[in-house]
Write a protein that binds this DNA or RNA. Structure first.
Lengths: 249, 249
DNA sequence: AGTATACTTGCAGGAGTTTGCACGATTTGA
DNA sequence: TCAAATCGTGCAAACTCCTGCAAGTATACT
C-alpha cells in the first residue's frame, strides 16, 4: 500500500465520517499507528484535515476553527502585504486571488486607494466591502470550503473575459524548474486563467514555499513577473528566479 | 468519541437551546460529568460559551454581544430563523438571498442537513463555508457594499439558469396591494429573477416591514408563497395576506 | 550493474494527554 | 440554616504522541 493510497483513503474516510481514529486506520490499512500518525501530520500540514489527540477531524467540523484559524507566519505576511500594497496603482484594475497572504494584502490597502478588484475569495471580498473607494467584482461558482474561494466554469468565465493591470496570485508552491504548482485541481484551473488575464502577475511568497512542489501545475515559473518576498536582496534562494527574469521585491 | 466531537456537540447544542446541562451532556455523550466539566472549562476559556453552575449558556444571551450588536431586532430574527430552518428539506436546492434575517437562518441550519445553496450574499456564503454538508454556489457580480451582495448581469444569469425548490427572499418592504418593494434598483433586478427561479418563495418577515413601501417593485405580493413571522396566528396584520393565499408560519 | 542518496517504515522508550474517581470546598434552594 | 447537588483538584491508569534510530525500499547517478 503506497503512501498516496493511504492518504486518499484517509481523506475519503474523513469526508464520509467527519473524523478518523488513529487506531482504526492502522487496523484498516495494516500499517503501524506511527505511520498513520505521520500521514495525519502530513495531511494536517497541507491543511487537508485537523489533527487531534486520537485521530483527526474534518476542518469543517469545528465551527469555531475556521474563523480564527491561526494564520501561519502572519508577521511575515503582514510585511509582504505592506510592500505589495504599494505596487497597486491608483485607478487600476487588479485581480486578487485567495489565500492568507492576499487577505493581508487587502487589509493593508490604504483607505485612499481607488481601484477595481476582481476576486474569487470570500474573505477578500468581505474585507474589501468595507473599503470606501474600491469597486469589487466577485467571480461566482461553486465554493471550495477549505480555501473559501469559488471554482468552476463560472469563475473561469469571469476571468477569461478580463484583462487586468495586475494579478496577485496565491501560490502554494514555486519551483524554479517545475513551475507554479497547486494541491487542488479545480483551483488550478481557475489560477491558470487568472495568470493570463493580467498584464503583470505578482505573488506574495514566504520563503517556505520556494522550491517546493505540489501535484498540479498552474504554469511555468516565467508566468510570474514579480515576487514579493521578505528575503534580503541577493539571497541565494532567489538566484534561479532572477536568472529567469523575475523581479523580486 | 474524540474530545473535539464532544466539543462540537456541545457547541451545537448551545446554539440550538441557548444552554446545556452538565448532567444531560454526560448522559448523552456517555462520559463522566468530570469530563464534561473539563470540556466546558476549555470551551469557556476559548470564549465559546459561558460556564455557569450546572452547565453553560450561550454568550449571545448576554446583553453585550459585540459580534451581532448592530443587527436590528436580532432576537426576533433568531426565532424566525429557527422556524424557517425546519422548512428546508434534506437534499433540496435552495436559493438564499442576502439580509440579516437570512444570515440568522443559515446560522440556525442543523449541521446534519445536506443541501445545495445558491446565494449572492458574502456573509451567507462565508457562514455556509463552515457547514460540513452544504454545497454552496456563489452567484458572482459587482459587490454592493452596503448589502454585501452581488448584483448585475452575472448574478442574474446564474439565477436565471436555475429552478430551485425554495427561495428565501430578503425583503425590505411588503404591502398587500403594492407588493414587494426594494430601495436599490440593482438588487431589485436580481431579486426579480430569484423569485422566478424557485418552486416556492418564502420570506422571513419582522412585523415592522409589513405594510411599508419602497421605490422599486420586485413583484406582486402573490409571488410570495409563505411568510415566516413571529406574529400570533390570526393577527390582523396578516389578514390581507391570507386573503391572497399566502401562508404564514 | 553498483553505489549513493533520499525516503519510508516499524520499534523502543520517554513525554504528554485524557479520563474516571476520591475527597473536600462551594453553591443552590427550600 | 441545612441537605443535596455541583464543583475543583490531585492522582493513577490507560492511552496516545514524539523522537531518534535502524532496517528496508525506491530513485538517481556513475
Amino acid at each position: 500500500m503506497l503512501k498516496e493510497e493511504r492518504h486518499t483513503y484517509i481523506l475519503e474516510s474523513i469526508q464520509k465520517n467527519q473524523k478518523v481514529l488513529t487506531l482504526e486506520l492502522s487496523d484498516a490499512l495494516e500499517v503501524s499507528e506511527d505511520t498513520i500518525r505521520r500521514d495525519l501530520k502530513e495531511l494536517s500540514d497541507r491543511g487537508a484535515l485537523k489533527k487531534v489527540h486520537g485521530g483527526a477531524i474534518s476542518l469543517s467540523l469545528n465551527p469555531f476553527d475556521y474563523k480564527d484559524r491561526e494564520v501561519y507566519a502572519l508577521d511575515q505576511k503582514r510585511i509582504l502585504a505592506t510592500k505589495a500594497a504599494e505596487l497597486i496603482k491608483e485607478n487600476s484594475v487588479v485581480i486578487i486571488d485567495g489565500g492568507t497572504s492576499n487577505l493581508e494584502l487587502v487589509k493593508a490597502l490604504p483607505k485612499s486607494l481607488s481601484a477595481t478588484v476582481f476576486t474569487n475569495s470570500i474573505p477578500i471580498a468581505s474585507e474589501l466591502a468595507a473599503h470606501p473607494r474600491i469597486e469589487v467584482v466577485f467571480a461566482g461558482g461553486r465554493v471550495l470550503k477549505q480555501a473559501q474561494v469559488t471554482v468552476g466554469e463560472e469563475a473561469i468565465k469571469t476571468f477569461s473575459g478580463l484583462y487586468a493591470d495586475q494579478c496577485f496570485l496565491g501560490i502554494r508552491s514555486l519551483h524554479h524548474q517545475i513551475g507554479i504548482t497547486e494541491i487542488d485541481w479545480e483551483e488550478t484551473q481557475v489560477k491558470r486563467v487568472m495568470i493570463n488575464a493580467a498584464a503583470e502577475v505578482l505573488s506574495l511568497l514566504i520563503p517556505e514555499k520556494i522550491e517546493t512542489v505540489n501535484p498540479y501545475k498552474i504554469g511555468e515559473t516565467q508566468k510570474l513577473h514579480k515576487i514579493i518576498s521578505c528575503l534580503p536582496d541577493g539571497d541565494q534562494r532567489l538566484d534561479p528566479y532572477e536568472g529567469l527574469g523575475i523581479q523580486s521585491v
